[in-house]
């Protein structure tokens, strides 16, 4: 066996891709070739070290803000964990909620009566920590309840990119806008109750409620 071949077989052996016969031939070579034996030891160590390389924890907040510096003109907004959870939840507006919305009994708001409210999902630092899994479960349950109650008209997440067009005096809000829900409710108080019941608020995020003008 040539040493060139042996080195590649060592790689295959580490990946557990060697059949018994080839493994025996490799072992025979390693017993008689000190330099390949050294290389095998080095590669084995490297293989073990690879396994020790840590994966960073999913952090509930801020990790996605470490990224890029702000660019002028076009500012890329990286979502914090809270908004990420909100977005995962909001995607349901395009997914399973869409199926429910088109189901019989939930028609356009004009037919169903009531007022329309826009719930703007804004991010901020979460007060308590939770795993993505847990956030996802809580947020999706809330969205499903809204849909089941017939309160939800539509929902969508917004992309990370935002552009601002403004006069000199206005301030850019620090709050990330993660997405929105368009809901139906009898009045403002009822809309507020719905917003308050959201896990987004429980986690310290904010929801801005705006009434939509009647047609």
């Amino acid at each position: 066996m040539k040493c060139e071949v042996a080195i590649d077989l060592i790689a295959d052996s580490l990946a557990d891709e060697l059949d018994a016969g080839t493994r025996r031939r490799l072992d025979d070579h390693l017993r008689t070739c000190p330099s390949c034996a050294d290389e095998a030891a080095e590669l084995e160590r490297l293989w073990a070290d690879l396994d020790r390389l840590p994966v960073p924890e999913t952090r509930p907040a801020n990790v996605s803000r470490l990224g890029r510096p702000a660019e002028s003109g076009r500012r890329s907004r990286r979502l914090g964990a809270l908004s990420r959870a909100a977005a995962v939840f909001l995607l349901l507006g395009g997914g399973f909620l869409a199926g429910r919305l088109s189901s019989p009994g939930i028609g356009p708001v004009e037919d169903a009566g009531g007022h329309r409210f826009l719930l703007l999902i804004r991010g901020s630092a979460p007060e308590r920590r939770a795993s993505d899994e847990q956030l996802f479960a809580e947020y999706s349950d809330w969205g499903a309840r809204l849909a089941d109650d017939g309160a939800l008209i539509t929902a969508a997440e917004l992309t990370n990119d935002a552009r601002w067009v403004r006069g000199d005096e206005s301030d850019e809000s620090d709050d990330e806008l993660g997405g929105f829900f368009l809901i139906r409710a009898p009045d403002f108080d009822a809309a507020e109750r719905i917003a308050r019941s959201s896990p987004h608020v429980a986690y310290g995020g904010a929801i801005e409620i705006r009434a939509v003008t009647r047609r």
């Binding site: 999913t58 470490l66 979502l79």
Partner: peptide
Amino acid sequence: DAAATDDLVQEAFLRVFR
């Protein structure tokens, strides 16, 4: 890219669902 990982994970699941 540790800084981008969480966003990538989210985007991955968005795509899975979509």
